[in-house]
Design a protein around this nucleic acid. Sequence first.
DNA 1: ATGGTGGCATGGCCA
Length: 257
Amino acid sequence: MKIASWNVNSLNVRLPHLEQWLKDAAPDVVGIQETKLDDARFPDDALAALGYRSVFSGQKTYNGVAILARGQAPADVQVGIPGFEDEQKRVIAATVGDVRIVNLYVVNGQDVGTDKYAYKLRWLAAVRDWLAAERALHPRLVVVGDFNIAPDARDVHDPAVWNEGHILTSTAERDALRALLDLGLHDAFRLHNDEAGVFSWWDYRQAAFRRDLGLRIDLTLVSDALRAEAVASGIDREPRTWERPSDHAPAWVRLGV
DNA sequence: ATGGTGGCATGGCCA
């Protein structure tokens, strides 16, 4: 079972990219972030034509998440964080086969010390409490998403800039990610690869992709029960090379053979 | 240093 995560930065613009990548990569499950469209406009028919059933939670202009599953409808769908009031559509969870999937579009946070940064940390604390319960209910748990946090210095192109005082790498953000991992979750990419300089996001500005000035902020986390089944994990750089790309590349984990 | 690029409620906002 191949499970992936992709921030498409507008599904209106990126539907052709998603369709091509589904054909190329043939994932079984995909968490999509930043769909940026209302539920009424979600392209579920186009995705069904490729064999994928979709569940989604969106809004105009900002945010929006979905889970796609090949050949079966995601079941027991949960939208949002229970008990956490939030206008922003950033969370969807569902069961596919015998695996519980949680898809997160983590708050960006703008800059350390801003109101948005405080919201990011509050939001992450609420996610942690919810995932503690979710993990107890569903030992076979995979959490994917745009985490908007680079786990450590290997995951940034310039550790002198991207460090404790900077958004996406600040100590409080990394501590919040650590608190999620401490629930018994593992960054699947790091189960198989300890190299530095493998990225999933490159800013549109300053020719960052051409210069490979990226960060690894798109993650797939597997629970203790799935750790031994996570046989491979990676990032597909190719869609970032296409015309009019998302600024993110898909990240994936494979469970079993 | 407060721009650089891209998306969308096309006018500022968010990333």
